[in-house]
Design a binder for these strands. Structure first.
Lengths: 231, 231
DNA sequence: AAGTGGTCTAGACCACTCC
DNA sequence: GAGTGGTCTAGACCACTTG
């Protein structure tokens, strides 16, 4: 059994004794106390951070984390889903521009390659902590008024349904784990290259027309998802 | 920008030139060629393995991986889902015993704490490669004949529906990322402590009675999931 | 300025696979 | 036995936060 795993096991015991939010001793002190190198201690801590048990903040220290947030895997508003859990939702627009559709995007939106597409990239947060990076693509031809109508920090879902008359009918969502790029990690205030949950969604309206393509990257250490299954 | 990320970017280019299944040069040679330490090279390789782009085999080498398998997130048989994608499903029983239900398990199965529960732990594989570790819990009181009826390498889903008259109606599935324990990693033939997808499922029959509690751990580098969403 | 976590180096030994 | 990836050490410097 790897040494770092034995260290991880002992750390979990220590963690359980300390309360949520409590500060861990510095890595160097822990390494000395456990009689291992700093590398081994960091490997153990790294896994606990990925598991969502610890949170490391550069310049400050390492702290016992709060449990993961569980979000519904559904065609509903992010705002409403978070409010239902007693959390305060937040959004920050990173980019809002137009790009030319590549082959994949064109296929997902049912338009031609090279046609203009709205790209809206936002950091989603819960109680002030960034938990996800959501990039939404919509056809400019289908939603020419989007830029004029959308309040960037408001709910895109509400804007589409209430102001643009879109009726969501079905969607397909892909879930996988990936490692964030440095840019993505920075936007999510995740210093290390942590495992993330990548959700890729295509949604259609009641006429079967594609509405949007969404690429959402969620912090794997902070968020989980819940789906309801039917045969 | 971290050095290992620059290395990762250059490796991706190299990877794309090589075909699927091609062998990468040894870590030490790559490190020397790129002018970085072996640690930095391993960090880059580690992320590419987690991303499912590379596969490392101790004693053999590192190889360009095949794309991830996408499984449906649904109340259907694992066997049928895999066959539908042209893969050969496999199952290997790791443990099949009875345990006493703890509080959480008792709640999920709708039985009392301490009551006996079937525990069936199996390694699921696709085309001979292990992709997941599935642990299923069922009430002994409800399914007393299970041990006598179930063909361990057969489909549990088929056994329950065809032989025991169970009718699946709905389920709730939780998805999150975790780091595997050494035991889990060994069973999945994943040497490193890779990010995994943990699925936790509770399913009920047409009378609303709990059928099973399932804890499935899938290799995050090999598998993704697809869900169909409806409002 | 001090202390924290984040990155990186150079080198060692082990476990495994193949010849 | 040789070569591969996996683990671990000791030490260095950087980026960041707090005093």
């Amino acid at each position: 059994m790897p040494l770092h795993y034995a260290v991880k096991t002992r750390l979990v015991e220590l963690l359980d004794r300390l309360g949520e939010g409590a500060a861990l001793p510095p890595e160097r002190a822990l390494a000395a106390e456990f009689g291992v190198s700093r590398w081994t201690m960091r490997q153990a801590i790294r896994e606990l951070v990925a598991d969502g048990r610890l949170r490391a903040r550069q310049g400050q220290g390492t702290f016992v984390a709060t449990p993961k947030l569980i979000q519904p895997l559904a065609l509903v508003s992010y705002t409403e889903a978070l409010r239902a859990q007693g959390q305060t939702p937040g959004r920050e627009v990173v980019t809002f521009d137009e790009i030319a559709a590549d082959v994949e995007l064109a296929g997902g939106l049912g338009i031609g390659e090279g046609e203009p597409v709205h790209r809206l990239e936002r950091v989603l947060s819960a109680d002030g902590q960034p938990i996800g990076l959501e990039t939404t693509y919509l056809s400019v031809a289908r939603f020419p008024a989007l830029r004029a109508v959308l309040e960037p920090t408001g709910s895109l879902y509400r804007c589409l349904t209430d102001q643009l008359g879109v009726r969501f009918a079905e969607g397909e969502e892909l879930v996988e784990t990936v490692i964030a790029t440095p840019r993505e990690a920075e936007l999510l205030k995740a210093t290390q290259s942590l495992p993330m949950l990548l959700l890729h969604r295509n949604s259609r309206d009641t006429d079967g027309r594609p509405i949007e393509v969404v690429r959402s990257l969620y912090r794997g250490d902070r968020v989980g998802f819940r789906a309801t299954l039917r045969p």
